[in-house]
Simulated scan of single mutants.
Amino acid sequence: MILHAARRFGGILSLAGLGLLAGGMLFFGAVMAPLVFTRLPLDVAGPFIRAAFPFLYGYCLLFAGLSCLGYLARRRLGAALVPGFTILGTLWSWFWLMPRLDAWRLADNSAAFARGHDISTWVFGAEFFLVLLLLIREGTKQP
């Protein structure tokens, strides 16, 4: 009985967490960032978007964590790898890459900053792609 309830609750956590994670990532990457850089002056847009990153990273960690816990409760270890990868990529971006990007920007090292920004974009895009694939897979499963 308890095991069944844990798996059922895990199903809710895994899918709700995954859906909210995908939606938040899509909103930030496809709506917020482009809107900020097309509607605000660059000297305002840069600091604004940098101030938003801790909120984005916290959001991603929260919902990837909930999704991962849900998949683990359901004993779906393969599926848990996707939000697990998102957690690791987010932590790496937040605590390793972002400080370096800030340092390169402050040092006016535009080549290093551009490379780092490209890496950041690819990591975020890969995370989003995997989350979206898993969400589509979960949504198209036969009951």
Rank of each mutant, 00 (worst) to 15 (best):
L101I: 06
R105A: 06
F128C: 03
H117D: 10
A126W: 12
D108R: 15
L77S: 11
G116T: 05
L69F: 12
E127K: 07
G139W: 01
S110T: 15
S110H: 15
P47F: 00
L61G: 05
R137C: 08
M98G: 07
A52S: 15
A73V: 05
N109L: 08
L101K: 02
I136L: 14
E127Y: 04
I49S: 11
R100N: 10
L106E: 09
D102G: 06
S110L: 15
G84W: 00
A73E: 06
F55W: 05
W104R: 09
A112K: 03
L133H: 10
Y59E: 10
L132Q: 10
A51Y: 05
A79H: 11
F113S: 06
L106F: 10
G84L: 00
V131T: 12
L62D: 05
V44Y: 06
C68R: 00
L72E: 08
T121Y: 10
H117K: 08
G46A: 15
G84P: 08
L77R: 08
M98T: 14
G58E: 05
L72W: 06
G70V: 05
L130Y: 08
A114K: 13
A114C: 09
A111V: 13
Y59P: 06
A73W: 00
S110W: 15
L130E: 11
W122K: 15
F63W: 10
W104E: 08
W96N: 12
G70Q: 00
D118T: 15
L77A: 12
I136G: 11
G89L: 02
F53A: 03
V131N: 00
R115G: 13
R50Q: 15
L88F: 11
R100V: 02
R75E: 13
A80K: 01
G84Y: 03
R100D: 03
F48K: 03
I49D: 09
N109P: 10
A80V: 04
F124Y: 11
F85L: 14
W122P: 05
F85P: 04
A103V: 03
M98L: 13
C68F: 05
C60N: 12
F113I: 03
A111Q: 11
L69R: 02
F128K: 01
Y59N: 09
L62H: 05
L88Q: 09
G125I: 11
E127W: 08
F95M: 09
D102R: 07
D118Q: 14
P99F: 01
R74H: 02
S120D: 07
C68T: 02
Y71H: 11
A51V: 09
G78W: 12
A51P: 11
F85D: 05
L134R: 01
G78D: 09
T121S: 13
L62Y: 02
A73F: 10
G125E: 02
E138D: 14
L132T: 14
L91W: 10
A111C: 07
F129S: 15
T86D: 04
P99N: 04
G89F: 01
S67W: 03
S120E: 04
E127P: 11
G70S: 05
W96S: 14
G70Y: 07
Y71T: 06
L56A: 07
I136M: 14
L81S: 09
Y71R: 02
I49F: 13
R115E: 15
F128T: 03
T86F: 04
W94K: 09
V123Q: 04
P99H: 06
